[in-house]
Design a binder for these strands. Sequence first.
DNA 1: TGATTTTTATACTGTTCCGCATAATATAAC
DNA 2: GTTATATTATGCGGAACAGTATAAAAATCA
Lengths: 221, 221
Amino acid sequence: MVQKTRRPLPPAAKADAPAEPKRRGRPRGYEPDVALGRALDLFRKSGFAATSLDDLSAATGMNRPSLYGAFGDKRELYIKSYQRYRDNARAAVEDIFRVQLPLRKRLERIYQVALDIYLSGEEGPKGCFTVLTAASEAVNDPVIRAMVVDALSELDKAFARCFRIGQEKGELPEDADPVVLSQLASATLHTVAIRARAQVPRKELEAIIKGAIGVMCRGGT
Amino acid sequence: MVQKTRRPLPPAAKADAPAEPKRRGRPRGYEPDVALGRALDLFRKSGFAATSLDDLSAATGMNRPSLYGAFGDKRELYIKSYQRYRDNARAAVEDIFRVQLPLRKRLERIYQVALDIYLSGEEGPKGCFTVLTAASEAVNDPVIRAMVVDALSELDKAFARCFRIGQEKGELPEDADPVVLSQLASATLHTVAIRARAQVPRKELEAIIKGAIGVMCRGGT
DNA sequence: TGATTTTTATACTGTTCCGCATAATATAAC
DNA sequence: GTTATATTATGCGGAACAGTATAAAAATCA
């Protein structure tokens, strides 16, 4: 590929960026943030092993040495991509907790946001990166496995918080167990993520979610 | 590796094998069935992309040309491995339906068998091959994706059958929806498979299953 | 302008990979 | 024994791969 010399990017007057002092050498031809996003997209599509550095290079617009300098080797890039994914997911969930909502409504919101993530991408739905990582790298890489375990438990806790709040507000029977319900809620998210990868249409996924919420909130208001 | 010439295997007096007529050429040095099982083990551990033909060759004891001759290329071998996996799983489920059992007991049996499959292997638990395949190859390969969809729906149907039988026997409230419950039951299997890959201990998985069964069968006998 | 610094572009290295071509080996049929 | 057939053993070929060495380019600083 004949690659034209790239012009440096404009100073990127970001809202709350600390007005970077002039950097010494040749300016970067890429924005690390968007490059990491592209890498994440690729990894989410095909996983670690099936994604080559050439693919990543093409998608990010960075050549391999730049990739290496900015993010380290392929495994480190994967880990940083996963961290980015989790940060995004966490932020989305926190948003949902920021406002007061009835239990069912809050659950619906969470699943809706999750579906948007799972089904995003023009070349077909990509599912949940945690599930994908659990299914591939988690067995052979202790560091990545620990991240997966952490992500799973974080999700459980978020759902448990939903149910606890709901129970306190009387939206659930007193004998309902928020922990058990939270695991069922996570399970529903996981099954939906898997089915999304198999291109089950959104309508069906929404039906599964609706049914699950019905069972989980049964006996409540 | 210096490989000694292998002696042909004994005629393998299988119970109901059709007493094969004498085969013409040099006898096989392997049994296709056990070789396929070994291949399945490898694929289950690391997935399609991260498993090389050399790995497969070493594990099966077949060299690459023999592998190719017996099963076709890597993708075909993967597909045949997956078919084998599904055949095994299906047989196990059918066994459970052969005897009459109370609903809860039947569910417990299914999950117990599934856990045995998911946690098998000395080098760590391998999870559910359908989940693993959904997470990797299903996006890019329509044939494999169709197999995954089929496996998912087969599981849903098996669970739905459980709940329908239970409902007819009065073990579930009349307004319970077997389809919705079956999807929750599948979801529970999926979340357990994922957590197994992350090496969550069996005790915790069993607790999740117990809680889920409790919710799904709530209001019943 | 010239020196310094940072990033980019190109190309190289050694490895691994998949699939197959070729030849040796072991059996049955004649 | 000899021929035909089926399988195994070895190894080749070309591609893809991950990571890096080297040099060119583009900016600041003096």
